[in-house]
Each structure stands twice: as C-alpha cells, then as structure tokens.
Nucleic acid binder design. Structure first.
Lengths: 252, 252
DNA sequence: CGTCGTGTTGAACTCAGTCAAGCCAGGTGG
DNA sequence: CCACCTGGCTTGACTGAGTTCAACACGACG
C-alpha cells in the first residue's frame, strides 16, 4: 500500500470501455470484437509493488496484459547481478512471445502496485490467429519491442552514463506522453536508482552521481518519484545522439 | 574476391531442394508449399564482402533471405561509432519485421561474400498471412531474435570483456553447429576485431588483448578466419554465467 | 524511536579506452 | 625480385569513466 498513497489503482471494467485499449494488442478490434475479447478475459489481478508477476521459465497457462501500474522484465545472473530488459506501462503485454512459446526467458516484477488482465493463453492465441488484423498488430508490437531493445543496446554498448540516463528518461517521457500520462514538463518516474542502474548497465551509486550532474546542469531533476524536465532541448539533443527516428511506442 | 578464395559460393536452385530450407521462415511448409515459395521468389543476388545490403530507413519493396555467407545488422551513431545488433547466417531473414513495416531501423552489410534470395515484400507478406503455420513460424523466429538480443544486452550490460568474447564465440558455434557448419573443435569465424568490438561494446584493441588472453588460457584461438576451441568445458562455463538455457537458434 | 529502504559522499581502485608506434602477410607494380 | 603499400593485428604507456567499499544522512513506517 505504501507505494501508491498518491493514486487509487484503477480496476478495469468491460473491455469495450477500456481506457488503455488503444495501446493494447486488441486496439485494432472494433467494438464488436471488444465484447469477444471481454469474453476471453478470465479475470483481473492486483499485484503489489515489488511482488513477482512471472518467473523465468515457468510454464505459462495465462496471457497477461498490464492494465495499470509499472512493471519490468529482467534476468538475474548467477552472482546476483540483474539486467533489466524493459519497463512495462499500462496497455503493454507482459510478453507477446507468450502467444507462441510456453515459457519466457526472463522474469517480470511489479515496480509499482499493478493491475493486470488475465487471459487464457491458448484461447487468446487461437483467437488472435483467427483474426488477421490482430496478427498484424501483434507482429507490429513485437517489432516495436525489438526496436526498443536495439536502442537500449546502442545505449549500453556505445554511450556514456550521462547520455544513457538522459535517454532512459526521454524514453519514459515519450511512452507516457503517448498515453496521456505526462505533463509538459514533468512525468511519473517510479524507478529507483537500482532499476535505472540495472537497465543501463551501471551501478546505483553512479546513477546517483549522474542524476545530480543532470540536475546541476539544469537538464532534469528527479523528485518524489517523478522527473521534472529542466531543459527539453538539451534532452532531445542527448537522445538524438543514439536515436533512430523510429517511434518509441506504437503509433495508432 | 580475395575474401572467399577458400570456398565457392553456392547458388540456390529450386526452393524444394534448398539446403538451408529447414532454417528459414519457410521450413514449416511441405514440399507443395516449396513450389509456391519458389513461385514467389523474384531472384537471387550476390553481394561482395563489405558491401551494403540495406541502409537504415530505406523503403523496402523486397524481402531478403540470406542463402549463403555472413552478414550483420548495425546502426552507426553520429560520431561514427557503430553498434552491431546481430550477425546473420545462412537461412536467416535479413529482417522479419520487414513483413510488417516498410522501413527498418538498422542497416545490413555483407560480412563475407553473400548470396540472398529476393522476394516481393508485399506478396510474401500476404502469402504468409494466409498460411497459419507460417505465421506461427515467423512469430517464433521473431521471438528467438528477441531472445538473442536479450542475451546480448546481458553481456554488454553486465559482463566482462573476457566473458563477452567467449560468449559471442559460443553463440556462433551453436548457431553454426545447428546448421551443420561447425567441426567438433573449430568453426568458421570471419569477423574482424572491429566487428567483435562493435557487437560487444568494446574497442578493437581491447578485443585483440582479450583474444590473446583467451589463447594464453588455452580456451580458444582465432586463426585464419576460424576459431579453434581449446577448452570446451571452460567455454560452456563462461557462457552459462550469462545464459538462460534457451536455444540460440530455432529448434526444428 | 529504532529500523529499513534509499540516496549521498569520498577515496581507492580497475577495467577498458586512447594514442601512438610498429609488425606482418598479401598484393601490386616497377 | 624487390619496394612499397594496405589492412589487420599487436604492444606499451597513459588516461579516465565507472566501480567498489565504507560511512553517513534522511525520511517513512511500525
């Protein structure tokens, strides 16, 4: 409870009224399809911040879509270090690959309190395959996911800590803005230093230093689980150095 | 020509006789389908080592499958540094995402002399979408691609140069072995130090040092565009540290 | 009011990068 | 046959970004 004093968690109702629907796999469906999707939904589940949503390699019977909150995909290496692959925002599927493979090669944890919609994996998979527009959409999402991974690899492989942190902030900003969840000059940022570190291949200590540097430079400021933007132009510039002009999230 | 004195390039004949067919997107198709795939093929193209195959953002009318040779996907950042995303081996598609998106967010170059099979993008896309098993297959390949990217990210983000190089070697070994292109204790490895460096987020100079160290430790030895394996157990051990037990290539 | 989770600071250290020089094999041309 | 180039690789000395370790600050919570 502690983590979300600020905001009441949304509980989803009928899929036809879903506010994040345009962001999901099901967004190409028209209203009639929404009713069918709703039929396929097996339930809704709340997960508390820090709790596990899926552990690497476990057999999957369900397909999960994040309805509210933040989560992240990661792998822990022998030795205890962790690599975070991506952060999940409302509307994201826990994993598209779940549709074609029974296990996933990463774990997923809730970063904030979360609500997920639960589907039967096989059923949904069958349903999607039977509807060509859904197949296209799923495919497209998958390739967007891949693009974000490419970008992340560029960051981690070829750019300074300063640039990486700025870039991650902008990635979050853009994805949130696309969901209407960002102000012009600030946005929610529930990640702790260790999350940032594990996503970018750094140590939490260095992440702390970089944030202070970014703040000293007037670029951005991390406060109260939000980021306040100080100098958007500079941020865009930092981002562009590794950028590719391809959208961070699905266009719709 | 200089680069491939060792070996004659294969020219593909009919898709029904294709030796790398089991590795491709089309592998689920039965013989009858092979004839149809052959019908869709628009031609065959040879590319010389170091030549470009596709440049980032160019509009795609074609869909390419690598028939023979090595290639790689990469992006060049302003400043001239390069990040290599993945290496392509015979049977790999230049990019699956080409089926759903008109441009790609990376370039592709030939690493050795190559031969590619050329299809009409839209036609092939339509054909695949009309055949459910092909859709599944494409999807599966896409998620394999993603798994390899995850692994690479783990390497670059969280492991030492020594481990990264060992891991890359093993990744190549496994993929080649799966194609029947590896000996028990050696395999082709046409990458130059800069390729290894740009794939792993290192400098060519440091890659050189690491190779010498690996050789001094009796782990492996790079010679004549091949890698000779000195201590497979040690290699597997190094690989396992970042591993996830998921196959590096498609199972079939 | 103590404890836990988080973030901050400083000092020492290290892995990998940078720069610069030189090596070697293969190819080319005189 | 030698001279010279070129591309790829190696070596050494130096630098520096980021890590490690350890101590401390601080707010939220129980």
């Amino acid at each position: 409870m502690a983590m979300t004093a600020e905001r009441e968690l949304q509980k989803p109702g009928h899929c036809g009224d879903c506010p994040v629907r345009d962001l999901t796999l099901y967004s190409v469906a028209n209203f009639a399809n929404a009713a069918e999707i709703y039929e396929l939904r097996r339930g809704v589940r709340s997960i508390r911040a820090r709790d596990n949503i899926y552990v690497e390699g476990r057999r999957l019977e369900e397909f999960l879509t994040l309805y509210d909150g933040w989560a992240f995909r990661y792998r822990v290496l022998p030795g205890g270090t962790r690599q975070i692959f991506s952060f999940l925002l409302p509307g994201d599927s826990v994993s598209l690959s779940a549709l074609v493979s029974e296990t996933l090669p990463f774990s997923v944890d809730a970063l904030t309190d979360c609500v997920v919609c639960v589907f039967d994996r096989a059923e949904l998979s069958r349903y999607i395959e039977a509807h060509r527009p859904l197949v296209r959409k799923a495919w497209r999402s998958c390739s967007h996911d891949q693009n974000r991974l490419h970008r992340r690899l560029v960051e981690v492989g070829r750019r300074s800590a300063y640039q990486r942190v700025a870039h991650l902030a902008m990635e979050c900003y853009d994805r949130l803005a696309h969901r209407g969840m960002a102000e012009a000059d600030s946005f929610p940022f529930p990640l702790r230093h260790p999350h940032v570190a594990d996503a970018l291949g750094l140590t939490p200590i260095h992440v702390s230093r970089v944030f202070r540097e970014l703040e000293a430079d007037g670029v951005l400021r991390r406060r109260d689980r939000r980021i306040e933007i100080g100098d958007m132009d500079r941020l865009r510039e930092l981002q562009a150095l590794g950028g590719d002009g391809f959208p961070v999230d699905e266009p719709h």
